[in-house]
């Protein structure tokens, strides 16, 4: 095994891990505040579509080659500068926030069931993008510029890694920052207190509903931005198709279980998940593996590992109490 191949594999791993990690970071805060939002997949896909369509309109003037057989123009040659890409990502995040606010309205305002509302939000996201996402074939979206550009070869085997989109590093940083904030800041303490026991938090005079509204919006922001990574960065060129998330939102939820609600473990878990995803096509031609390993076990691992980890943690009543928000998914009824 050569070093160059390992670095390239790491690039693939990070490429798969980043959108999962970003969405999971947002959902971690939501769950820490005691709310379970199963709408991650929905918010992510709306973010992905928004990014692509905004990217198409923000980038119009760089498209100079005339139409070819009725579709678009040269996608490969134009490039989207970072500052515009940042706007695209932010808009996608805001689309996620918009969806999450609907969830917040129902769950916090109308006291609806969190499970049903979250699933409804996913359904809404998939339906919305199904209805509005048609006609993307005629759009022109430029490739997001890369850090090293044409100088990538000067960096040797490290070139592909250094050339990754900055979102990768920012996401890892964000996750650690959120983990730190949850444990070391006053706001983090308040969020955790509310997630632990919303009734006593309410008695202490903490604004349960407002804090949760903030957490839910943060979750929407992260999920929407994660969607932008999927449609703008993941395959190396902008691409939108219906159902592009393909379960990434659910993987993000599994990731939090795997990490038992701890930020540094979320990062670690994201790498493991990314690794299993990247391994599938790399191990396919390896002789000697049992026939069920690559087609069945490998793709199932991101769902099986969290079940095992969660079970082991749950067996130890103290461990689960230390990390899992006790009020997760429970109805908050302030006495009047």
């Amino acid at each position: 095994m050569e070093w160059a191949y390992l670095v390239l594999t790491l690039v693939s791993v990070l490429n798969f891990a980043t959108p999962l990690l970003l969405a999971a970071t947002g959902e971690l805060v939501v769950e820490k505040s005691g709310v379970l939002n199963l709408g991650v997949e929905g918010m992510m896909i709306v973010g992905a579509m928004t990014a692509y369509f905004v990217g198409a309109h923000i980038d119009l003037e760089v498209c100079t080659v005339p139409h070819f057989s009725g579709v678009g123009c040269l996608v490969g040659t134009s490039s989207l500068p970072f500052e515009r890409f940042a706007m695209v990502v932010l808009t996608a995040g805001l689309a996620g926030v918009a969806l999450s606010l609907l969830f917040a309205l129902l769950v916090l305002g109308f006291r609806s069931n969190q499970v049903a509302t979250g699933l409804g939000l996913t359904l809404l996201g998939l339906t919305l993008t199904n209805a509005l996402g048609a006609g993307s074939g005629d759009l022109k979206v430029g490739r997001v510029e890369t850090v090293l550009g044409t100088t990538v070869n000067e960096w040797g085997i490290w070139g592909p890694l250094l050339n990754m989109n900055p979102m990768v590093w920012l996401t890892i940083g964000l996750c650690f920052a959120v983990g730190w904030a949850l444990t070391h800041t006053r706001l983090g303490l308040i969020i955790r207190a509310i997630g632990e026991n919303h009734d006593s938090a309410h008695t202490l005079g903490l604004p349960v509903v407002w804090i949760r509204l903030g957490a839910i919006s943060f979750g929407g922001l992260c999920a929407g931005m994660a969607g932008a990574y999927l449609s703008m960065i993941q395959i190396g060129a902008p691409l939108w198709k219906e159902g592009i998330t393909a379960g990434a939102g659910w993987l993000a939820l599994a990731l939090i279980l795997f990490a038992t609600w701890r930020a540094e473990r979320v990062v670690f878990g994201a790498l493991i998940f990314g690794f299993t995803l990247a391994l599938e096509l790399r191990l396919q031609t390896l002789p000697g593996l049992p026939s069920w390993f690559v087609p069945w076990l490998l793709p199932s691992l991101p769902y099986l590992i969290p079940i095992v980890v969660l079970t082991l943690i749950s067996l130890d009543a103290r461990a689960i109490r230390r990390n899992a928000p006790a009020s997760l998914g429970k109805l908050f009824e302030p006495g009047s």
Partner: peptide
């Protein structure tokens, strides 16, 4: 083990889906 059944039952959907393919 007092494991949260909501999350485990959901995760098993994807394992079942992979089993269909397999």
């Amino acid at each position: 083990a007092n494991t949260n059944e909501l999350l485990t039952s959901l995760m098993l959907v994807y394992v079942a889906a992979q089993t269909l393919f397999f």
